[in-house]
Amino acid sequence: MATTTEFVPPRSGRIDKKYNRVPGKKGNFEMVAWLFMRISGLFLVVLIFGHLITNLLVGDGINGLDFGFVAGKWADPLWQFWDLAMLWLAMLHGTNGVRTIINDYADKDRTRFWLKMVLYFATVVIVVLGTLVIFTFDPCIPGSPLEVCN
């Protein structure tokens, strides 16, 4: 009589190797990334339009935009926070977007890995540099025409 054996899906032995799924790490990373894209997207709409309106439309509009205008904005903690939030959210949102594009279009794991390394490196450089500039910005460069510097 036949003995009971473990259930083996029919013909699954001859499946082309490239279709075999490598068991992924447990966890919710992809879900959190998906959620982050939606939430950061909403915030970015407000942040970016706020940025565009204050810089380009209000007051002298685009004609009032110069070094002094930016220096004035960054003297205010609100705008420091605003620009910091915009920098971080836009960079992470964009990086995650490009990450999914790399995942979708690169078909070799090695290519995928190196493209993502370049992407992450670029992101870290820009985020660190941008954060540093926002917090350590000194309007009084040598020969500054600004009143506060004299």
């Binding site: 790490k25 919710n28 992809e30 879900m31 998906w34 999914t100 995942n103």
Partner: peptide, 11 residues
């Protein structure tokens, strides 16, 4: 389906 190759790969 919460896998990295699951529903979240849908574009």
């Amino acid at each position: 389906l919460n896998d990295k190759e699951g529903v979240w790969r849908c574009r």
